[in-house]
Design a protein around this nucleic acid. Structure first.
Lengths: 243, 243
DNA sequence: GCCGATTTGTCCGTATGTATC
DNA sequence: CGATACATACGGACAAATCGG
């Protein structure tokens, strides 16, 4: 869909950085040079660079230039900067993902569920428990709640594959925003049963609420991760000031 | 410091949202209205809105408008979207922060430390262990490594207050980029000694590398958090596509 | 279904400010 | 000091999505 020019430039620069065309700590070509190279306006170049900054690939310095701070080693595992499905993450890391559906039901949100998930009481929901494997190791236990009025006719078969593919390609739901909260929680009996936790008595929990383009929250998911395989990466830039 | 116009507009809109001047799910004034209201160009308004989007405050929808998706309850605790010091986080949540310095030494990075921190072997470093309290509860155990060639003349007194204040106000080091990795690790004897972990046998660990405006990594910090008080929030927007 | 008004998204060109060297 | 670099700000143009008549 997006044949945006700034996105092409972003992807091109990103690939060049990943392929090592710029040394670590080396300056990228200046904005003016990039303008000539890509034949576009300054705004468009700057927009591409901005995306690289939020990816943690480069650092801009007024008066100096744009420095490459990408280190291949650090990018190896799950990078949760954007919204990415389990399958997408796995494929990016060249691992074989499989999914097993443990539980597939429909339910109506009561007070307790409503408070936990953020759905209104009385909402008609799908509730799924899914186990995600990477190279045959059970790593993640997912509790998914989907709003039936948006995510129509979900089936266990779809759930075994990628639900996100179904949402985007079949239902044409565009996922816009997602709020995520990471915590550490004690293990439950269900966790213990399905995940090999070894000596750990707790796990990494990522709770997320996902909104579609109508501003409707249609998904609440709690992902419970085996701690020894969990890694959440994030690049921050300091905002003007808080004071 | 930034007396940028877009930042003023950003702060003004942010405050209005936090104060409830717009209902949850309500549309903000259109870009044209905001242009008239603030007396600026469209780009400037759009830039302010962009910041609100990355904060997870609003959601933009082409052809419709900009929707407020801010919910007060969710913003209560640590929001680790930007680079924020412990003191800043605490004050924002109206809590009383105190810091105790457990260990303050200087050392030279050997192979092991170099690999762990990302500093070059042979680097002269300050190494600190600090315990952070919130309302008299010990919540975070920090292991800080600072590059002596950048962070000159650090003292235990400074370390008891805010090191970031010292860096920015006294040394005039501008902090630009920070890479963070969140994991869950088993507790160590030191953790057990200083943090009340109760039944938990592991904790939330945030490792971060911080760069100054010269592109020099001058800080490596490992923050070990008591799990029951740890919460890491993050707002994601789906990028064009990966396919 | 079409059309026009509104709203956000993309892109361009230019000017000025500020930091670095 | 001048040249170069990124940062901010303005203005205008057209595209794409939405909504109402």
């Amino acid at each position: 869909m997006p044949k945006a020019k700034y996105d092409d430039i972003y992807k091109d620069l990103k690939a060049k950085i990943e392929n090592g065309e710029y040394e670590f700590q080396e300056l990228l070509p200046s904005e003016n040079q990039l303008i000539l190279h890509y034949g576009c306006s300054r705004n468009t170049v700057r927009r591409a660079i901005r995306s690289l900054v939020t990816d943690g690939y480069v650092q801009t310095m007024q008066g100096k230039g744009v420095r490459n701070i990408f280190e291949p080693a650090q990018q190896a595992s799950f990078t949760l900067g954007g919204i990415e499905s389990f399958k997408e993450s796995a494929l990016r890391n060249h691992q074989v993902p499989t999914t097993k559906v443990i539980c597939f039901t429909e339910l109506t949100a009561d007070e307790k569920i409503a408070k936990k998930t953020g759905f209104l009481p009385g909402s008609q929901l799908y509730y799924l428990q899914r186990l995600h494997y990477l190279d045959d190791k059970a790593l993640i236990l997912n509790h998914n709640y989907f709003l039936k009025s948006v995510v129509t006719s979900l089936t266990p078969e779809i759930a075994e594959n990628s639900i996100y593919e179904y949402l985007e390609n079949t239902l044409h739901i565009s996922i816009v925003t997602s709020k995520r909260i990471m915590t550490v929680e004690k293990m439950t009996q269900i966790d213990e049963k399905y995940l090999e936790l070894g000596d750990y008595n707790c796990l990494a929990v990522v709770s997320s609420q996902t909104y579609n383009s109508d501003g409707v929250m249609f998904e609440y998911t709690q992902s419970r991760h085996r701690p020894d395989y969990f890694r959440f990466q994030d690049n921050a830039t300091r905002r003007p000031a808080i004071h």
